[in-house]
Write a protein that binds this DNA or RNA. Structure first.
Lengths: 327, 327
DNA sequence: CTGAAAGCGCTTACAG
DNA sequence: CTGAAAGCGCTTACAG
């Protein structure tokens, strides 16, 4: 496993210099005579040569590695983003390195530095948290795409949905259905995405005549959104008013809320409608009671890679808000 | 982003040669005078030097990258394996590259070749499928750990559970409960793991007095185990005998079977008990009706990395069967 | 105890 | 149209 077929092998076989082989490997066909090109191509074929990305990376000061730094792979939404990004990168000839920060800034920084050392050619930050390293990355101008959560320490290319509009759509849905006691559940330490979903929801309800105090708001704590929902559920179903409609800013929060609702003997749907924002395919199988705004995570990968390619070409890429499906 | 602090920078600052700095960076402290060591350490600190893994990889013929080649990241069990492996590798100073083969042999091969070119120092194959490239890898003796499914084209280090025993445990459980019409649901194109679970289940039932025809066996097709279960469910609940107990070889199959059961108006549990082998944490939240053999996926990562480290040290590592929890 | 030198596989001005 | 040479950052015999 320690023998690699190098340019030199091919060059020797074709009777030319490594420079010539290198150029041809890199597609500069016109700079060599057709006869030479043919001979080199034959030699490549014959010995089964494949360019060594490590040598190339060292020389170019940049590898074909793209770092995906995600907050939590156990979250199915992030797993789907990772999976679709991986597929899109492979198709474009890149290799994805996966880093799971568990939402911890120190780990995020550790990875950011390690990836820089690996000379990665790009960064995909899914639900990034503020950190020193992120600020440095931001300032360095390295090719970076933020996903789901916007850059928490500046701005930069973003792939996601219009979170405000999504929240508002749920508000309209509840209002049109004639619901009177709406609630919203979100994580205590929310991202820009959570916040926008909540504020879009609240703004639209106000617009449609609700007073702020008529809307139940519950944040929850926990290391997973399941816990967040379960914890917030305790307060939501324990107050004087029981909501007849609940927006959960993620599927997993809805699962947690639902479990609490079941424990309290509530019928869902029926006593109370729950809508979440995520719409993971799993819902249809294990949570038919749940209505969702469907975020097209499976196409995130393609958009992220398209964004990176624009940036590599020096073109600008501000943000890409993908359409979601509801109902 | 194109400036990297190199050994040369440190050497210049410390007034020594790069060789000396290199040795010290690599922990060969005793080969330099204490004064030199101190000076070099200071310089490293002062300029914030970090070894460049690319240069190192090229020289050593081996990177610090470990390839994780998994069949399907959308499966929560694999996502958990990926996540725990990633954490364990990071702790050990390695970086994980993630490849999702979607269970396709050509893609698996593409990745295997690409990873070889990246000079990865190890392979983690989760649910590998037979392929040309896998045979080559197998023959090459490269450090490899197979996870969940054993090497389908030979043998090699394995991390998983005793699938046969797990299947048998479920058979005992059903028998002790007094169930009369057991069934088992598995994917048509099964892995060694599926097969072992099924055969362990069947063998134990036979031992306890069932005849083969008294056990309902249903395989299912589909691109996901959810589909597999749903499809097999149609046949299971459509026959002359309705089972009173079902073993599903994975959680997702159980979700699919359950959905079909609900459509047929069956009560679960009650009319029929379902037990699955996986025991993903999500079950407690979205499938309280499901009893499971719990596979400790969260500790797979540590075992996998421990296995790789044994192999790297030249020690042998046959297989590691982890204990599962049931009930 | 320390350094000069070669080389890992590659790319890229530069000279011819 | 082609090649010799330098260099990306590192490690490692080898010589002193």
């Amino acid at each position: 496993m320690r023998e690699y077929i190098s340019l030199a092998t091919v060059a020797a076989r074709a009777g030319v210099s490594v420079s010539t082989v290198s150029r041809i490997v890199n597609g500069e066909m016109r700079r060599a005579s057709p006869a030479t090109v043919a001979r080199v191509l034959d030699a490549i074929e014959a010995v089964g040569y494949r360019p060594n990305p490590v040598g190339r990376a060292l020389q170019r000061g940049q590898s074909q590695l793209v770092a995906m730094i995600a907050a939590n792979l156990d979250n199915p939404a992030m797993a789907t983003i990772a999976s679709s990004t991986e597929a899109a990168l492979r198709e474009a000839g890149y290799v994805m390195v996966l880093c799971d920060t568990h939402d911890r800034p120190e780990l995020q920084d550790e990875y950011l530095y390690a990836m820089r050392a690996q000379m990665v050619c790009g960064y995909v930050l899914v639900a990034a948290v503020p950190s020193r390293g992120l600020s440095e990355l931001s300032a360095s101008g390295a090719p970076t795409v933020f996903v789901s959560r916007r850059n928490p320490v500046g701005n930069g290319p973003f792939v996601g949905i219009d979170d405000c509009a999504a929240g508002a759509a749920v508000a309209d849905y509840f209002a049109n259905l004639g619901r009177r006691v709406p609630a919203v559940v979100f994580p205590r330490l929310g991202s820009s995405a959570s916040r926008d979903r909540v504020s879009g929801f609240l703004a639209k309800l106000r617009e449609r005549g609700w007073s702020d105090k008529a809307i139940i708001q519950a944040d929850g704590e926990g290391r997973s959104h399941l816990q967040v929902g379960y914890n917030a559920g305790a307060r939501i179903f324990g107050g004087s008013d029981t909501p007849d409609s609940i927006l959960c800013v993620s599927d997993q929060i809805a699962y947690g809320v639902n479990r609490r609702a079941l424990e309290r003997g509530l019928k869902i749907p029926g006593d109370c409608d729950i809508v979440s924002i995520d719409g993971t395919p799993l819902n249809q199988w294990v949570a038919p009671w749940l209505k969702s705004i469907e975020i097209p995570y499976a196409v995130y990968g393609a958009e992220i890679v398209a964004g990176l390619q624009l940036i590599w070409r020096g073109e600008s890429f501000g943000e890409r808000l993908l359409p979601y499906k509801f109902g």
